[in-house]
């Protein structure tokens, strides 16, 4: 009698890319934040709307026109971008730190995934969170404010390139950190100050020359400036420099991450 089922005992064969594994890792990263959407999507939205309300109420009368539009219209792209990048960072960094502390990091190390596939799966998860937060925020803000689209390319490019940037930084920080405290310190003392002082709330053109020069060294400035240009058609800095800075940072951070994962930095003894 023939057996009903035959098992092949040879190892599972993968092509050049383990598509199924990559997709599974990506899906895990997305489901991780989608499951607690009140914390990961709604809560950032509430923060963005609160900031929009208080800054418009506090400054709307004294700052009537900025870059040729009302203060609220000037402000919202920066707030949305801040929210996107902070969430992209939070997604990847928390995923890795929690996995390291709880021990389920083996789920990342044991499957037949190459360093590049691990890097991609994690980073794309963070990118998805950033974009999701951005879409939800813009949708909600469009109910309150008239939103014009001046240049769709810069909106899309900056949204993706900036979220990717912070998603990569999040993975790198997650690799480095051993404790939640260290992660909280990076968030409190690096990510938040840089994103708040990026020109989201004011035009850097009104800064004294030296401080404007400093502000233009902040990569967050380019993320917000180009994104805002896409909506209001006014940029404080050079758009070309922004594209170059963001693309360069994405490539360099991506290569660094790939290398670190390949040598097993802080992951393998």
């Amino acid at each position: 009698m023939q057996p009903l089922v035959t098992f092949s005992l040879a190892p599972r064969r993968l092509g050049a890319v383990n598509w199924l594994g990559l997709w599974t890792l990506y899906l895990k990263e997305v489901r991780r934040f989608a499951k607690v959407f009140t914390q990961t999507l709604v809560s950032p939205l509430v923060t963005t709307l609160l900031f929009l309300a208080i800054f418009t109420l506090a400054l709307g009368r004294s700052v009537q026109q900025i870059g040729g539009v009302s203060y609220a219209e000037f402000l919202f792209p920066g707030l949305v971008m801040m929210s996107m990048v902070q969430n992209a960072f939070a997604n990847t960094s928390s995923s890795l730190v929690i996995a390291k502390i709880q021990g389920n990091i083996v789920d990342l190390l044991m499957p037949p995934l190459s360093p590049l596939e691990v890097a991609l799966g994690l980073t794309l998860g963070g990118l998805t969170r950033g974009i999701a937060v951005g879409l939800v925020s813009i949708l909600a803000v469009s109910i309150l404010l008239p939103i014009r689209v001046h240049d769709g390319f810069f909106i899309a490019f900056n949204a993706v390139a900036a979220s990717l940037n912070l998603s990569l930084i999040g993975v790198l920080a997650g690799l480095w950190a051993d404790k939640f405290d260290q992660m909280a310190a990076v968030t409190n003392f690096v990510i938040q100050p840089l994103s708040f002082l990026s020109g989201a709330f004011y035009s850097t053109q009104r800064l004294p020359e030296f401080w404007r020069w400093i502000a233009h060294l902040n990569p967050f400035f380019y993320m917000i400036d180009g994104f805002r240009y896409g909506f209001i058609g006014h940029a404080d800095g050079s758009l070309l420099a922004g594209v170059a800075v963001l693309t360069g940072a994405d490539v360099l951070l991506g290569l660094l991450l790939w290398r670190l994962l390949a040598i097993g930095y802080k992951l393998r003894p």
Partner: peptide, 21 residues
């Protein structure tokens, strides 16, 4: 230190945005 720094940043942003006027 985290909240103190955040408040300092708030103050900086509001001061710069209101333009010293």
């Amino acid at each position: 230190l985290g909240p103190a720094l955040a408040n300092l940043i708030f103050m900086l942003i509001l001061t710069v945005t209101s333009g010293g006027r």
